[in-house]
């Protein structure tokens, strides 16, 4: 059991019809708390985020370097909708783990696809129980892709193991046509693999095994 501190960002969305707005721009069905992938027209990943519903507000938690790109993407599609976006990353710390942790009072906990996400305000003292290496081994054991390693803008969701975050019947969203065509034809190009070391071109290197994105022959 453990919890690891990750570099990430938290965007707070306030206003009306926030979930439908996010649903129209990402691959998973967003009608409540979930994890979803924002893709571009070519279905390449902008970022994969956890969606937290906090009262009438929604928080988007991302783990990659794509905060600015995702923010611009969201703002470009607002078109006068009554939604305000605030960057509250600097007020909080983000932890992720296997969900078997005792969380301190004041923690916002979300069961996400990558793991259990815990967000704590900066004023709350908390010592993470997992090191970077613990988190890495956990990811490799469970074939969990993650930002900066497998989940990058070079890949589409199917290539890096995020097929479960691509809803098959939710309707249109940016990148949907490309992903639906891949799924219906069964042609994904690449896939996430867990392999015994040594692994050439590994995206996450572990002690005995590694994650890599391999071409499907």
């Amino acid at each position: 059991m453990g919890l690891h501190h990750v570099d990430g960002y938290v965007l707070l969305l306030q206003g009306e019809n926030i979930l439908p707005f996010l649903d129209g721009l990402s691959s998973n069905l967003v009608n409540g708390p979930c994890t979803t992938v924002f893709t571009d027209r070519a279905a390449k990943i902008i970022d994969a985020c956890d969606v937290l519903v906090i009262g009438e507000n929604v928080a988007l938690v991302g783990y990659g370097d794509e905060k600015d790109r995702l923010t611009r993407h969201l703002l470009d599609h607002l078109l006068g909708q009554n939604i305000q976006i605030r960057d509250i990353s600097s007020l909080n710390k983000i932890y992720i783990g296997d969900g078997e942790e005792d969380y301190p009072p004041g923690a916002t906990v979300h069961e996400g696809w990558f793991g259990t996400v815990c967000i704590l305000g900066n004023s709350i003292d908390f010592e993470p129980t997992w090191t970077e290496e613990d988190w890495r081994e956990h990811r490799i054991q469970n074939a969990i892709p993650f930002a900066k390693h497998e989940v990058t803008s070079r890949h589409h969701p199917f290539a890096c193991g995020l097929a479960e975050l691509v809803h098959s019947s939710k309707g249109c969203y940016l990148g949907q046509e490309v992903l639906t065509r891949m799924r219906s034809r069964g042609k994904f190009g690449h896939r996430l693999a867990v392999k015994e070391n040594p692994v050439t071109g590994a995206t996450t290197v572990g002690k005995a095994h590694s994650l890599s994105i391999e071409r499907i022959q």
Binding site: P20, F21, D23, G24, L25, R41, H77, L78, L79, Q81, C172, Y173, L174, G175, Q176, E177
Partner: peptide, 8 residues
């Protein structure tokens, strides 16, 4: 509106 396969 935002959304759709092409963004808007």
């Amino acid at each position: 509106l935002s959304g759709g396969c092409s963004g808007y």
